[in-house]
Nucleic acid binder design. Sequence first.
DNA 1: CTGAAAGCGCTTACAG
DNA 2: CTGAAAGCGCTTACAG
Lengths: 362, 362
Amino acid sequence: MSSGRPTLADVAARAGVSLKTASRALNGEYGVAAETARRVLEASRELGFRPNHLARSLASGRQSAAVGLVVSSVSDHFMAAITGTVEGILAPRDLQLVTASHGDDPDRQRRLVRTLVERRVDALLLVPAPGDATYLQPEIEHGLVVVAVDRPLEGVEVDTVTVDNREGARTAVARLIAAGHRRIAMLGWDRRVWTVAERHAGYLTAFDEAGLPVDPDLVLLDYALADDPEAALEALLSGPDPATAVMSAQHSAARSALRVAQRLGRDVDIAVFDEIHDADLLVRPPLVVVSGAERLGAAATTLLLERLDGAAGPSRRVVLAPEYVDAGAADAHARFQAVEPTPLRPFGGSTKAADRPAEVTS
Amino acid sequence: MSSGRPTLADVAARAGVSLKTASRALNGEYGVAAETARRVLEASRELGFRPNHLARSLASGRQSAAVGLVVSSVSDHFMAAITGTVEGILAPRDLQLVTASHGDDPDRQRRLVRTLVERRVDALLLVPAPGDATYLQPEIEHGLVVVAVDRPLEGVEVDTVTVDNREGARTAVARLIAAGHRRIAMLGWDRRVWTVAERHAGYLTAFDEAGLPVDPDLVLLDYALADDPEAALEALLSGPDPATAVMSAQHSAARSALRVAQRLGRDVDIAVFDEIHDADLLVRPPLVVVSGAERLGAAATTLLLERLDGAAGPSRRVVLAPEYVDAGAADAHARFQAVEPTPLRPFGGSTKAADRPAEVTS
DNA sequence: CTGAAAGCGCTTACAG
DNA sequence: CTGAAAGCGCTTACAG
């Protein structure tokens, strides 16, 4: 039931006025006698009236003031960081957040999009699952605002915010190499995921630039899909010629690597993307953390709001400069604090705390 | 705009049938000629028709199939863990999650509740902000299902799932005492939060049972509100008679304590509630982690679904037995994995992996 | 300052 | 198997 809830008609009847007058009074519109308004408000309070927002947006044809946020997993810390930033910006604007996870499953993403469209969210913020998403095209033509975060969306042109993943990985690996490492394992959560491929590319570039050979046996891009992931890691970190360092495209695989190294009593340097939570407190703080979650969320939300505010024009791509933090450094925690929640202007400008300006392409 | 979106009427017109026939065909109801149905579906596809879920629930008077989840902070790891479990259970039931954070601000919670009610969510899952919430009573009487998680809701009787916080803290502190500690600091994020008070009570009990005196100077229950929290911590952990161990009611304060101890070069044992993320990988793994997030989420969602399925009767209180993990133990990570995602039967039964059965009071 | 009519996009009875 | 009418809870023009 929409059960027993009083309607505007009930309020009007109780106040002895017409529907329209009741509506006017409750919405604080002009042209209601003070005494009439008082009676209406009183009736509303007595009945516990709550305007039906669904009916209202149906009748007015206005926006639903809801934004869908679709991510891999709502409980993942990287995604949670994005979610937090997004919510922090949307809430003051009275935009409700509807959240859902696709688990990197393209079909689930498709079904979620469908559901959210049927619920008439005004906009969709997507950390896209892998795979084709041309099915979004008609929705966009029908007025849905879509923004991709962290990964591009295949098959449609939409505003997109990513980090310069190649550059981030290249730099991180270069630092491992500079620290003397030659056998550097490359870990990815799921090779179908765009960021994994990009970060892998950066890894290869760093080796190339250093004139060093890459051992493909040290590359494990499907960590999440392995039968026994930690066994696979153990193989990389032991044996006659083991990896001495790890470049991980995701925090989760890096955590596993730390654990395995710990178990084996091996001394392993780690470089990792998006290690969100107090990296400085880990048994062995990563040599480099490349970060971006909060800035991604902030930039994407800004683009989204601009579209909701009516900005037209071709889709935009914002590429954020990676941030690097040495988690072992004395000021690591402070730097994390300072860097991450920076809501930035996504256009025409540099990311305030970044090493180099953001690139913007239209 | 609800912009350009084709309506059922458009589909019907294109297929050359009445509204009702189009509706029937699209909903797969009985009594439509195969050929007619085909024409309707084709028209729908060509137009990119998406039924307006808002209009549908308005017309049908059915549930909106949306659940509001209101927590302190969507990006907090404890809350994210709850959110993940909740979503995992709701999604297969086609219930959409609408999320929002109150930041432990009672007024914000009230406004959020109001917004969500106006959006006609069928149910509200609340990690309550401190303070009176009797304003929920009329909503409940009008049919809103409300379930409180992690903390009770003041001023209304609703289904509630909590952990036995006193017992958890008592046991954790007892273990610190058993390990030889006498000067044990007690940290809480915000004393207005119910769990902080409960855990503090458990702390006091443990000292009492051990016949040991409590030093009130070691109790810091407003960590989040302190001007310079880490300075306050530093005071506790240094000086002539410093704390040698810390009982923290929240993961965040425990993390700070670790950091400060690290900085001071002090050797400090930690017991902590809800240290979610790989506690075994911390510089100094906590001696005891008391956990419950996923079980809280699962139990609360189960209660909520039962109510949505029509279960009547007085409100129920589920108190989950705390889980204890020694994060330094060899199998700590495995135990975390095994313990946390256990969706449990909240009634008449024990929590599978728990040390003792859950208590249920009606 | 106030109200009666029509309509938002759909569904629920009720007829044929 | 198909359709015309009425209504969900609100708002938007349009009158008075």
